[in-house]
Design a protein around this nucleic acid. Structure first.
Lengths: 257, 257
DNA sequence: GATTGTTAAAATCTCGAGAAAATATATTGA
DNA sequence: TCAATATATTTTCTCGAGATTTTAACAATC
């Protein structure tokens, strides 16, 4: 049997922290769910991000447990896990609710993302090694292929594009020395993904997006932190404009009592 | 059945988000617990921050439920809530554990705090109104009194000082437009509080700390963002030096099996 | 002595049902 | 008709117990 704890071994401090996942939420995306709670958590998260459960909507355990096919307690735990991602809010004796949305919130998310992601990119560029470079190259390649396919109107690949876009952005900052920034970035990215999907402004992913990615990629590989962060900032902020052009009453709540 | 999605009421955007607490963890500090889960959550959080449960320690539900006097399921939920604060980590089929600590982690926390807190202060100075100013003045006054008492060796007030110190820092950034930054800042502050308490380097709160607070306060009231953020940066980073001077093996020990 | 395999103990995960609270509905009175 | 109160229904919260998995203890083999 193996020692399962982080201390007392010979590992250096940084290894100690790096090796164990202090900042993991229970299940990080595409991993195999080891437990019913995690399974329900993953499915619920997907449904919320994709808008199956609308913002502000009440999440009644009694109803949901059927659909997700787990017990009431199990579903409650999954809901609690989603509070970590700020996709669900829990209120005292009044159950759970999908986190509401608003333009102001999206603007906040976007600007905070810029703050964190540019800093993380700066750190990556400063201290990233060959492994990081290789990962960025690979992620960019995969993303480029997907964007090319999209441009050629091979449908059914927008799902794929979103996944690879996330992977690219995460690769860029993967060499950042700050686990906390990456943790917060992950949460914010999830949030913005929800906005992108809910608003139908899933515009057919404009052509110049690829040009932006290309420029971002090149500046990064050239280790030009100033230029890279500048491009990244513009890149992120652009999605904000799109939302601001939405009909003004689009986000005004709803929810049932 | 009724439309379950969020559009169509009359509330303004900002009201929608401001009124409800999208980023609240279940119980924000000193509020009355409305539920057993919240009560256990608060007590557990306090115990973890104060080091009653050591970093890396396994948190066995069967044992803890006695001490906190709640059922197993209830305690599990409280534990899950603590995952949101990154004070507890949950691993698949292997239960819960107090989040481990390390020098590298504390350095990360501190630097990320600087990034977020200076930005939030900048925003507060830029857009804070009279209410904000009044709140800062009040918080500073209360902190000053506590520091004065501490200097006069009236004991038993270090608890009080910590509370007022937190209140002062939160007041400074309370006018920030970014709910997300404040949310993340709150989490990081909690984390660093744990480090401060665990390491015995509860040094008797050096005298010049008050001078720093004074300078920070004055620069803020003068709306000098550059100077204020500079002081704040130094102020936060100073705690880092203290920890780095700890014996090297301080963080490696403890945790049981 | 160290590794591997087997068995026993402990802990986690999961569910269903009862108690408490909140929400919806009905009743009453102006 | 409207407001206020009382009743009924729904939903959340909580607990205890069974099934599964992990962990520990021990034996056997190389």
């Amino acid at each position: 049997m193996r020692k399962s704890y982080p201390f007392g071994s010979r590992a250096t401090m940084s290894e100690t922290v790096l090796s164990q996942a202090a900042l993991n939420q229970a299940t990080d995306s595409h991993e195999e769910p080891k437990t019913l709670v995690e399974g329900a958590y993953q499915r619920l998260r997907r449904d919320i991000i994709e808008g199956v459960h609308a913002p502000g909507e009440k999440l009644r355990v009694e109803h949901l447990k059927e659909h997700y096919d787990v017990g009431a307690g199990t579903l409650r735990e999954a809901l609690l896990l989603l509070v970590t991602d700020a996709l669900v809010v829990a209120q005292g004796q009044r159950g759970f609710r999908v986190a509401p949305i608003s333009i102001a919130d999206f603007e906040d998310i976007t600007r905070t993302r810029v703050l964190l992601e540019t800093e993380a990119l700066r750190q990556s560029i400063a201290s990233g090694g060959e492994d990081w470079e290789a990962a960025v190259v690979a992620a960019f390649h995969r993303l480029s292929r997907a964007e090319q396919r999209l441009a050629d109107h091979d449908v059914g690949t927008t799902e794929e594009w979103e996944s690879r876009n996330r992977a690219f952005h995460e690769a860029l900052i993967s060499a950042s020395s700050s686990r906390w920034i990456r943790h917060f970035q992950h949460i914010l990215y999830q949030q913005s993904e929800r906005y992108r999907r809910i608003s139908l402004f899933r515009q057919p992913i404009a052509r110049d997006i690829h040009a932006e990615h290309q420029a971002l990629f090149e500046a990064t590989m050239a280790r030009d932190a100033t230029r890279a962060t500048s491009i990244l900032t513009e890149h992120i902020l652009r999605t904000l404009d799109a939302v601001k052009r939405m009909p003004a009453d689009f986000f005004t709540s709803k929810s049932k009592r």
